[in-house]
Write a protein that binds this DNA or RNA. Structure first.
Lengths: 173, 173
DNA sequence: CCCACCTATGTCAGTCCGATATAGATCGGG
DNA sequence: CCCGATCTATATCGGACTGACATAGGTGGG
């Protein structure tokens, strides 16, 4: 699912600027979150290819807002992309990798890793949109998926942290 | 957690070829899985920097096996990397992205997406190493983390699929 | 009033993925 | 017994993506 397709998806729900597309996925960032460095070039390419249109909105003493809207051709291409075989999900976790080597680390470091990871999961859980903000059944499914996974993760961490405290005295203060 | 650090980590547990490093992470691939295209250059760079040593082992009518081993300097660099602030976890899911647009898709496609995703999760769950294969407390933690997450995921999918079948008749045949 | 943060665009170096190339060994099924 | 599939094992390369940086003024809280 490349950044061009992601942009088409957002734009199929309404007009937006590149900046707004980025912001949108900071919320849904638990499963996609392209950077500016890929969004802006993607939007340029889509414009070239006639899949989106731009209109510049002048702003006083600021760069123009460039508002993108999807074209009928863009909708066709997007729908077609959703019908193609999807790439597999990828979960990349520096935390879990580091935990493989917990035995090499000082106890306070292991404790710190736990703490940061719990904080990260809590923050992301809190950032998920409200149920009242979702409109389609698909969005509800995705939202609940995220909520379920984060809650499970936090439960597991709390429970395991106690165990680690036994094995590595002082690891949990 | 870049590929160089990942290679150092594996080599800190024992000598391996690039090929073996890749294979190792097909098992733990639920949280890291670098490709050949990044492993081989990483090993070359590590060799240049004196963090690993290579010895070539001739093989009859096959390319030499290049067996890498970590140096004391490599261990120091690895340990230091584990003490630095870690990047955040990233979960990239083409499936969840596509599900945001389930309302635009034909019911059989949504059904197919579910099926493939369930199959993927089952396959990965089955691929996790046996408990008897793990040696450290950290490895056990990571393994159980993976198991817990996949089982939760599969439960959620089974339960939601029934709901989707109500909302989108025929979606689950 | 200042500092931090927000809106908003964009570039660039470095990193990584996925496909491709090469080449023989091994193994099960028809 | 042979054919295709899969495995070992190396490596390169184009294209995609990230994260940091640059620019520049507005807004709001302490």
């Amino acid at each position: 699912m490349d950044v061009r397709t992601i942009c088409l998806g957002i734009l199929s729900r309404g007009d937006h600027t590149g900046y707004e597309i980025k912001k949108h996925f900071e919320i849904d960032g638990f499963f996609v979150e392209p950077s500016f460095g890929s969004i802006y070039p993607a939007l340029n390419k889509l414009t070239e290819d006639g899949l989106v249109l731009v209109r510049a909105e002048a702003q006083l003493k600021r760069p123009d807002r460039k508002i993108y809207s999807i074209t009928p051709a863009g909708r066709r291409v997007f729908l077609d992309a959703l019908m193609q075989p999807l790439a597999e999900d990828r979960y990349r976790s520096p935390f879990l990798f580091a935990m493989l080597f917990a035995d090499l680390l000082p106890a306070p470091r292991v404790d710190g890793l736990f703490e940061e990871f719990v904080a990260q999961a809590q923050r992301r859980l809190a950032q998920l949109p409200e149920k009242s903000d979702v409109e389609t059944e698909g969005e509800r499914f995705v939202l609940d998926f995220g909520r379920t996974m984060y809650i499970t993760m936090l439960d597991y961490l709390r429970q395991q942290r106690a165990k680690f405290a036994d094995v590595v005295p002082n690891a949990a203060e």
